[in-house]
Amino acid sequence: MISIRNQLAQLVEGRLIDPGHIDKALALVGVYPSTESWQRFLDKLLLWLGCLSIAFSVLFFIAFNWELLGRFAKFAMVEALIIAAIATYWRLSDHPLMSKVALLMAAIFLGVLLALFGQTYQTGADPWQLFFTWAMLMLPWAAVGRFPAIWLLWLALLNTATVLYYDTFGRLFGVFYSSDESLYWTLFAFNVLALVIWELLASQWDWLDERWSLRFIATASGVIVTWLATQAIVDSNHTWGVLVWLAFTIGLYVFYRHFKHDLFMLSGAALSSITVIMVFLNSVLPISGGGTYLLFAITLIGLGSGAAVWLGRIHKEWSK
């Protein structure tokens, strides 16, 4: 859909409007707002800016006095925020988006509360425990909320907890080769599992069918597995990385080309393939002066244009 603004721009560029009438035309279709529009706009803008200023003023004030606040005052403030968010969620139940955002804010404030708890009462807990506890505690809210963003936050928390666990312990159940690699394998397995489960459930429940949440998870999985594949090529120690990457890419292609049309996933697969191929080339050819660079350039030009043409063709095919 082309916006009215761009439509007018095209008409003006195509000389289809008399130069003397341009201003009138713009005012007529609303590109130049009317006085009433300006009034409404200024009204809203002044309100937002005024409230934002006051909110920042309160924030600065609290920050200035933070050291002097007693621990109960701090806890009271954070808990009040959580209660306010939940109350908003309850009161605004007929505004689906605003109530869900309120629930998301409540989940975030929960994390703030846990952090404050850990900071005030030095429990000696590990960092990963904060994120893990946060994820577990917010699970009921995620289930009730039916908001993809909250589930995305939940997945992010579990990912963070895993990374921090490896920071502390260096392994998971004592399996796999080096600790770095096994971390990536675990993360990849977890995120792919999440992706598969989410896609399966999305066909059942409409509210889960949020393309951008799925794309986010797929991007995370894709980045990890591409990294694993390139590491495998560079180290030439384990070929598992390349095989799993191949399986993942083929899986992506089959599913998102034929079952669920999603050009973003295919683009990601293309980008990942280009990266792996270039790294492979780099490991196979020696760097000998400018000639190798020229070869790289030409290969990349070919791969890039090829991907463009292929994706463009699919896009046209799906738009019919």
């Binding site: 050009l263 973003f264 683009s267 293309a270 980008l271 280009i274 400018g290 000639g291 660079y293 020229l294 790289f296 350039a297 990349l300 030009i301 791969l303 890039g304 991907a307 463009a308 994706l311 463009g312 896009h315």
Partner: peptide
């Protein structure tokens, strides 16, 4: 084309030219 396809193409374009300019 959607924006993410253009992003991929943009990256490829920039990297290709880096290699070419290196040459």
């Amino acid at each position: 084309s959607p924006w993410y396809v253009n992003v991929i193409l943009a990256f490829s374009g920039w990297f290709s030219s880096f290699f070419f300019l290196g040459f």
